[in-house]
Design a protein around this nucleic acid. Sequence first.
DNA 1: GGAAGTACTATCCTTTAAGAAAGTGCCAAT
DNA 2: ATTGGCACTTTCTTAAAGGATAGTACTTCC
Lengths: 120, 120
Amino acid sequence: MGDTIAVEKISVDCKQHLRAINDTQDLLSGKWKVMIIGCLALGKKRYMELQRMVEGIGSKMLSKELQELEINGLITRTVQDTKPITVEYELTEYGRTLKPIIDAMALWGVQHRKKIITAK
Amino acid sequence: MGDTIAVEKISVDCKQHLRAINDTQDLLSGKWKVMIIGCLALGKKRYMELQRMVEGIGSKMLSKELQELEINGLITRTVQDTKPITVEYELTEYGRTLKPIIDAMALWGVQHRKKIITAK
DNA sequence: GGAAGTACTATCCTTTAAGAAAGTGCCAAT
DNA sequence: ATTGGCACTTTCTTAAAGGATAGTACTTCC
């Protein structure tokens, strides 16, 4: 009896664990979001700066991903009234809470590349 | 002059940072891989166990994702010669190095859900 | 001998994501 | 007056991802 309850608890815990992973993945969905956040983690950036830094991204995708990140409260968009108007994107405090994930991904990626190269 | 070099160095660092993130994302691409790894992080699992735990996944997708994870050396597949044969999947040592990423994603997801619920 | 369980594979079809290319509106410098 | 930069949006098209369904091969239980 106690066993059954224990097994069920583990199974419930697992479901919640997987759901949590899924939730996070949903917010970071798309080919570019994690890279954009990785970019903004280094400081605020203008639209054109982002497009130049994130190699290969087109303006459609950049706009779309930025909009979704803004909707989810991860970044802010502020229009500067400079000569030609410029727009600055910046991580919100909430967006900065993603840093452990981004850092872990960047670190793993670096080590993976090392591993692949030395394995050749 | 020194400034130019410094700026270039930062820009190169950033490119490598983004490339690393991209590499990691590539290996974890697809709707289910991160969840499968999150599942296997709790211990080795059989095919059917995985399919029951990862809600919504079909057999085609499960096979496909498992094959890709195996090709990349993140999991092992071992056939047990039990009465009806069963197959066990397990994280490799290398696969286990992804744990910091998975854990960070699970933690963030849990906190995000709390935030969303209390905000209502 | 049929049902049921395990571990898949194969086929087909739909949906989604993503890219390319062009265009918009605004301003500033030449 | 026109070129060029900034920050986008729109449209069209293609490629990839994912799901539903059915089927295979083997075995054991009733």
